[in-house]
Structures are given as C-alpha cells and as structure tokens.
Design a protein around this nucleic acid. Structure first.
Lengths: 337, 337
DNA sequence: GTGAAAGCGCTAACAA
DNA sequence: TTGTTAGCGCTTTCAC
C-alpha cells in the first residue's frame, strides 16, 4: 500500500497532525509548512487512503447504486439513467458503488446490510423493482438518505423522481386524436407494473378530453417485449379492423409490431399509425422514424443525483415530477374524416 | 454507525478476537462460542464494517470499473457489458466501484490515484478509450491487476478480452457474397478507432477469399451515428449505382441508412441488402429485422470478470478472443446473377 | 502554529 | 480455546 501520511510527515519534518491539517486546507498551518507538504505530496505521489479517512470521519463519501440483478435479456431500464447519475455524483466528489439486488430472492434487511457494510452515505434505487417489493419497506425503516427512481415513496429521508406517466400517455394518445384518428388501440405492458397503469390512465384521459368513447375492446395487455407487441397488435387489428392507430406502452413493442406488420404488408404509417413510449435512442432511426414519448433520462439522472446530495446535506425529502415530451416523427399519418 | 465487534463481544462475554475468529469461520473457536456469536449477530443485527477490515487486511475486495465520462449522446459501448460484469463480480463477493474518467482531459497518473484512493484490488477498463490513450501507459506502470475490454494490452498483471473483429467483418461480408452479391459497399466508422480498421480488414479478407477484387470506391468512412450512416450510404449509392449490398460497421449506421433509404423509396432488402454490426438488442425488431454480427456481451462480461479474478489470485495475464456470430435475418436478399 | 496521543472497527500476532 | 494488544491510515481533541 503506497506511502502514508506518516511517511509524508517524516519527509517534511513535520508532525502527522500538521500534515493532515495542511492536506485538508485547515486553518492554523503556516504557509511555509503548507508548501512543504504540497511539494512532498507531488514528489512522493501521496494519495490519501479514503478508507482510513472514512473510519475516523464516519462518513464514507460513497453512494450505493442499487440495481436489480435478475435477467438482462430485456434491456434493463436502469442503464439509461446510470451514466448520467454517476457522472453528476462523481463530479460532486462522491464515489459510487454498484449493488446488485435480486428482485425475486430479496430478504428483508438486505438493503440495510449493504448500506452498513460499506457505510453508504445514501443510495439510489434504480427502476426495476415492483411497487410493493420488500426493498421499499426496508427503505422506510432506515434513516440513510435514499432516492427512488420511477416509484413513489414518502419519508423525510427519501426523495423520488418520477416521470409524469399519465401525461405521457395523454400526449401520445392526444397526438393520435389530433391527427384525426378516432379508433385508437392501446397495447399496454404488464399490468402489475405500476407505470403500465399510469400510461393507461393517460390514454383514457385523452380520449375523454376529446369526447371519444372508451372502448375496452381496443385495449390489450402485453409484456413490453418485441414479440409481445407483434402478437398483441395482430390480434387487436384482427378483432377490430376499424382501428387506424395504436399507442404502445413502450418503443420495443411498437418496433416489434411494425416489423411484424410490415411482413404482412401492412405499412406504417400508410395503413396504420403507431406511437411508442420511451424515446429510445434508436427510435429516430427506426423505419419509419418512430413517434414516441421521450423520457428525459438525463434530466431524471441529474435531478436524482442532486436530490440525493440535498438529502445528505440534511434537507427534507421531496418528490420531483419530470415532464415527458412528445417526439413527432413519421409513424403517424394525419387522416381526414 | 451501527454496532461494532466490541459491542458484539461484550454481549457475548467473549473477547473481540474470539468473536472475530468466529465471524471469519476460523479454527480454534468452540462450537458453543461460535453459536453464541452467530446468535448475537442476528439479535443485534451486526454488520461488519468492510472499510475497517480493509484497513488491516490491506485488501479491499473492491474492483474499480473504469468508464469514460465525456458524452453520452451516442449510446456508450460500456453499457452493454456493465451489468454482466458486475453481476459476476458481485457473486464472487467483490464490490464494484464506478470511476468515470475523461477521455479528453486525462492527466497521467490519474488511474493510479483512483486505485490507491480506494485501494482497488483490480480494475476493468471499459471500451471507449482510444488506442494510445494515456490511460494505457498508466496501466503498464502499475502492478494492480487490470482487465481491458476491446483493446489489446500485454503485461503479466493485465488481461484483455477482445472480440475477433476481423472475423466479424469477414462473416458479414462473406454472408453477402454467399447471397450472390458482387458489388458490396462498406461504410466504416471513424478511422482512428481501432475496431474500425479490424472490421475493414475482415471486409477485405472476405472479398479476397472469394476472388472479388477490392474496390476502394466502395468504401467510405462515417461516424458510427445514424445520420452518418444515412449520408454515407446516399453518397455511396449515388456514386456507385451498381452496388447491391452494404456492410455497415455498426447497427446504428445501418438503421439510419435503412430509415433514410426507405424515405426515398429504396427498399431493404428488395432494392439493396444491408448487414450491420453489434447485434444490438433492437436489431431483431427492426423493419426489416437486421442481419448483423452479434457481439457476445454476456460472454465477454463473464470472461472479463473471471480473468480479473484470476489475476487477483496471482495468475499471469492472458489475452482472450471471443468469436462473434452472424445473425441471419431479413435485411439481406439472395440474388442470382 | 505545531505536536502527542487517542481512537475509528477490525485482524492477527502473541500469550496464556 | 480464549484473551491481550499492536497497529492499519487517518482525523481530531488537547496541550504546548
């Protein structure tokens, strides 16, 4: 293990405490001593051991990033936020540690263990844990600051950052309505996932706002996967040939559906209009470029990181709502009636 | 800070060292004492402080994951490997810490600093740093085990995991040739990125193997982005209308191109055949499903993690080559001539 | 302005 | 089998 503060002190003919003070920019160090220390740091390539600091200071400067670790066949949602969050935290001088937690085999208390083990100053729980997952009970039991992404939580030591999913569903559906569509299908993701319900609510809200009767026949539940989108849309259109547009609860299902429709010579947007949800990086290069709802990953990441920093400073938790944007592209056709 | 080993010892009427031994499953502890300790751990919810262990053991159990941190407009390549690597490492009992390092403003010695600061047992350098980046010089200067992804490096304390990119380029091009294409364009990514050259070599190798003369006019360099792929393919086809197939050095450019061609009523694969590279998760749901070269992210991640674990155990570094696979889908048309 | 010394939580000699 | 103690690298009283 490299050289320690003791080596540094010897090299400078100073006491350890003086060196420590110089290193931490504290008062009560002569300019001469300070310079001597700084010079020695350079010469000896001294790097302070954060672990040792942590032990005495009782704060670690480490943030735990809690990801689910079950299967990555489906693109894990956390990947979109991760780099942005990490970058902001790093810039604020925090180090980040990834903790993979099982969605299925979680045992109560696991979160606390991870926090204590590495003495996390706070943590961020990434999307992927279902509402009602025991990890959220554990979050309420502790006092360590926690920021939860894409999930509501209320406690003084917690903040949550949520996209306004209802608005997202509404924007998507309304865009279809304003483009002249009357018979609009909705293919939702898994019903037990919270955001599915919100996006669904948005769909209904838009219909109502524009005086279009809600038809249960036009709604199907799928699985957020490409194949699922393809199957569901096939069935939906077969049963309801009058449908001219479909809103999918995520981009992947929308893509799966378009790809599949195309094989059967049903063209988008000529024969049917499609709106996705997520604003996936590749959606703009889809064929046709996909109209979708943009989730603001960078904004969410930044706000999440700052919210955590605030909690660590001692401020009260809050709930932040992020406004999604409609990205108008080419998968929707304007129709006259 | 929770309860310490001293509290535990008092609670058990045992000495700290006995408790420590019991906790670490060491010999020389009576069954009775061990049980007493284990029970107390449960009751008091004792969680050992890893930082303190680290200090005395001089090994941290922490792996540094080195990511670049400059811009994430383009999907960062590291995201694909990250969850797999992290999962294997976590399962092996290692914790992982993310360190974001600038590609542009790197100053020599930065890597060592990060390693010493948190006492990393080893680190993994993710793709994104160019060949010749000063971080690789630093890697050679240290003795801490390092695994480098998608970059060659040779030293006893280093291992590197590389996709056989030449083979990838060859497979892609050969598939086109075997489908009857003679005039095959290649749209490469940025020339100063190492993998670009390798994929290009693979392209030439396949041509040569099948006796098709290499035509420099058929090759263009773009930027790995969707718009770039669109522009380059437009120009390429304009200048060389006899081209019937294009191999793109990544999926995103291929998608950008297809989307753009489609607007101009050039259909894939009817009018032109396309092969991408990467095996992006969404490529199978593209319209049409994209024929591409699958990079084995999971395999690479797993091998990288294990390679690092081996280095930490004291074994010599090695270089692992991963074989990419051709995913035959529907963006290539078989033509007769 | 500086130094001596205690102590953070833990492991690992060494003694008993 | 158990206990005592030194010490990992650092910060922080408390004297001087």
């Amino acid at each position: 293990m490299g050289i320690s503060i003791i080596d540094l002190a010897k090299h400078c003919n100073l006491s350890v405490s003086t060196v420590s003070r110089a290193l931490n920019n504290q008062y009560g160090v002569s300019e001469k001593a300070r310079q001597k220390v700084l010079k020695a740091v350079d010469e000896l390539r001294y790097v302070p051991n954060e672990g040792a600091k942590e032990l005495v200071r009782k704060r670690s400067n480490v943030i735990g990033l809690i990801l689910h670790g079950d299967d990555y066949e489906v693109e894990p949602a956390f990947l979109h936020h991760l780099p942005y969050i990490n970058q902001v935290l790093n810039e604020a001088g925090k180090d980040t540690m990834i903790q993979t937690i099982s969605r299925v085999n979680y045992h109560s208390g696991e979160l606390q263990q991870f926090i204590q083990k590495r003495n996390f100053e706070g943590c961020i729980i990434f999307p992927g844990f279902l509402k009602g997952h025991p990890i959220f009970d554990d979050v309420l039991k502790i006092k360590t600051p926690v920021v939860v992404l894409e999930e509501e939580i209320e406690a003084p030591h917690c903040s949550s950052i949520n996209t306004d999913e209802i608005l997202g569903g509404e924007l998507a559906t309304e865009h279809l309505i304003l483009s002249g569509h009357k018979h609009i299908g909705f293919i939702n993701g898994l019903g037990f996932i919270h955001i599915s319900n919100l996006r669904f609510q948005g769909y209904k809200k838009a219909l109502e706002k524009h005086g279009i009767p809600y038809n249960q026949e036009y709604v199907m539940e799928s699985n957020y996967k490409g194949e699922g989108g393809a199957e569901a849309s096939t069935e939906l259109l077969q049963r309801n040939p009058e449908i001219t547009a479909i809103f999918f609860a995520n981009d992947v299902m929308a893509m799966g559906a378009i790809s599949n429709l195309s094989k059967r010579n049903i063209a988008v947007p000529q024969d049917i209009s499609i709106v996705g949800y997520d604003g996936h990086r590749l959606s703009q290069f889809y064929n046709p470029p996909l109209t979708t709802i943009q989730i603001q990953y960078k904004e969410i990441g930044g706000k999440a990181a700052h919210a955590l920093l605030e909690l660590i400073e001692g401020r009260q938790g809050k709930s932040v709502s992020i406004v999604p944007r409609l990205l108008k592209r080419e998968s929707v056709k304007r129709i006259d009636y």
